[in-house]
Simulated assay, not measured.
Amino acid sequence: MRIGLFATCLGDTLFPDAVSATALLLARLGHEVVFPPGQTCCGQMHVNTGYQREPVPLVRNFAEQFGDPSIEAVVMPSGSCAGSVRHQHEIVARRYGDAALRAGVAGVRSKTYELSELLVDVLGVTEVGAYFPHRVTYHPTCHSLRMLRVGEKPLRLLRAVEGIDLVELPEADACCGFGGTFAVKNADTSTAMLKDKVAHVTGTGAEVCTAGDSSCLLHIGGGLSRVKAGTRTLHLAQVLAATRARPYPLEGAPAGAARSPEVTR
Rank of each mutant, 00 (worst) to 15 (best):
A18V: 00
Y51C: 10
P133E: 01
L155R: 13
K197V: 07
F62N: 07
R246P: 12
L217Q: 03
S225M: 09
M76D: 06
A7C: 10
R265L: 15
G83H: 07
V34A: 12
E171V: 05
T233I: 10
G129T: 07
A82E: 03
P16G: 01
T181C: 02
D68F: 06
L115A: 02
I3G: 08
F35H: 15
S80C: 09
L236E: 05
Q88T: 15
R156Q: 13
G203S: 11
V201W: 01
G221T: 03
E251Y: 06
R60D: 06
S80V: 02
S116Y: 05
T13F: 15
T141P: 00
V75M: 03
R232Q: 06
R226I: 09
G256P: 13
K195R: 15
G79Y: 02
L155K: 09
G11A: 05
V75F: 04
L5W: 11
V33Y: 11
A187Y: 14
A106P: 10
K185M: 11
G107W: 02
D68A: 07
Y51T: 11
K153L: 01
K195S: 14
D98S: 03
P133A: 02
T126H: 11
V263D: 04
L157C: 05
V184R: 13
V263Y: 05
S215N: 14
E251L: 04
L157W: 06
S78T: 01
L148Q: 08
A242I: 00
D188S: 13
L119G: 09
G79P: 08
C42H: 04
K153D: 00
G129R: 09
A253S: 14
H89V: 01
Q39K: 12
F62A: 03
P77I: 03
P254F: 10
V201L: 04
C216G: 07
G79K: 01
R102K: 12
V33Q: 13
E152A: 08
Q88R: 15
G179R: 04
A241I: 08
R149P: 07
C81L: 00
